[in-house]
């Protein structure tokens, strides 16, 4: 029984691993070649959905994996993604495990908040004074499109991850 449970967990986490890898490839290799008017932050909704279905430690580990991948494409941020994403997804896992219910609405809330991370880092790494004009243009051109596109992506991703968890969990088997 224990062995069977282990196999199901391994399959589930193998699928999550592939899902994060595919999201990374889409976000940084394939989609930038297309003429999309807004950047798609696929890794954020995918990791939100995954971490909401995992325990705290695994939430942190998935965040770490995504953060390290993100840093290879954006090492100009001094490896900050590998620190921020594990912390953010640890909090996501903790809140979902102990305080909030695991629903699509909760996932939307986390996704909307975490989609702002790249824009906040962008402002942090922008040389010069932080003016209200700069902030307004960043919110208009970066934050709002990032939140909207991430929420749209979250819809299929959240239900896909939920289905995977239902299919490959011990209770179901």
């Amino acid at each position: 029984m224990k062995k069977h449970n282990f196999t199901l967990s391994a399959i589930r986490r193998g699928i999550f691993f592939l899902l994060i890898l595919v999201s990374f490839a889409l976000q940084f290799i394939i989609l930038p070649k297309t003429a999309l008017p807004v950047p798609l932050l696929l890794l954020i909704p995918v990791c939100v959905a995954v971490s909401m279905h995992e325990n705290e430690l695994y939430s942190l580990l998935w965040g770490l994996f995504a953060g390290i991948l993100w840093d290879t494409a954006s090492p100009v941020t001094d490896g900050l993604y590998a620190l921020i994403l594990p912390a953010a997804f640890l909090i996501t896992g903790l809140l979902t495990g102990y305080v909030l219910r695991n629903t699509f609405l909760t996932a939307s809330l986390f996704t909307a908040l975490l989609s702002l991370i790249p824009s906040v880092l962008g402002i942090f790494y922008t040389k010069g004074k932080l003016t209200s004009e700069l902030l307004a243009s960043v919110i208009k051109a970066e934050c709002i499109p990032a939140v909207i596109t991430s929420l749209i992506i979250l819809i299929p991703v959240y239900f896909f991850v939920s289905a995977i968890v239902r299919r490959f969990s011990y209770e179901r088997a």
């Binding site: 976000q27 290799i29 930038p32």
Partner: peptide, 8 residues
């Protein structure tokens, strides 16, 4: 090989 689309 990679483009950081989230970079301004």
């Amino acid at each position: 090989i990679l483009r950081d689309t989230s970079d301004f």
